[in-house]
Design a protein around this nucleic acid. Sequence first.
DNA 1: CGGAGCTCCTGGGGGC
DNA 2: TGCCCCCAGGAGCTCC
Length: 304
Amino acid sequence: MPELPEVEVVRRGLERWVAGRTVDDVEVLHPRAVRRHGGGAADLVARLRGRTAAVPVRRGKYLWVPLRQSGAASGVAEPDRRSGEEAADDALLVHLGMSGQLLVQPADATDERHLRVRLRFTDGGRELRFVDQRTFGGVAVDELGAGGVPLSVAHIAPDPFDPAFDDAAFARRLRARRTGLKRALLDQTLVSGIGNIYADEALWRARLHYARATEGVTRAEAVRVLDAARAVMTDALAQGGTSFDSLYVNVNGESGYFERSLAVYGREGQECDRCGTPIRRESFMNRSSYLCPACQKRPRHPRW
DNA sequence: CGGAGCTCCTGGGGGC
DNA sequence: TGCCCCCAGGAGCTCC
């Protein structure tokens, strides 16, 4: 499940392998993968052809590649055209959903079973493939608005690594909510980038129960769980970051972090690393929550 | 309008 | 062996 660290690994892979290249042709193999694009598949293709990829940007789990007009003389390379200096009007927006991957593959590599969109480049090098088994993810070309953020991403809050992220404002907004703590952490309009796995991990590190009522969470606790989220995602990125060093832009949730370093997620019945109490799995919001019942005390008045 | 629940999707795995 | 159901969950949408 790609959350912020996995998406950042993908962003870095795109920066290395795709930035500066010009799109030659695009193939949409599944309409659902482009459902977020207003004009449909044909329009998406038309808006991508001949455009040059700038340095990709990420906010939370969203990723976009600003698109520049390529040089007037077709086929002529544009040396030293530093990205970011020219404002782009639109961008290729990508969300990986549950199972999305971006792969950089040789043109003659066999198509993946769940290949949804293929981008070929004018340099004839490796192509970019969007592969997504469950099609919760998708790609679109979207207009860039204020601050260079795609219009359809404007409602998404900055993530905890964004210099613009305001810890005090986060605590204030969290405490103004009338809901459960984990539900709030998963709300991408409050703080972005955190999904089910890192929410559970952050709550465990902060020793807070997922059903704590947000209005009862102290400012210190709010910042504690936020810092815990930063820490666990930083660790994940440090470990997952090795996989994009190859030609394969590893993108799915398999940074390797899952198996190695998770304290609670997927560890039902195993001992808590801190106190030895068996980790418990509970059903919550129609999905799973993992926690240490000793370290993370259930509140007297839980809120879901 | 905030909050909560529904829904989309597909393959793997368990039960019978 | 085969079939059916459950499970994974991000986020837009709808309803109250």
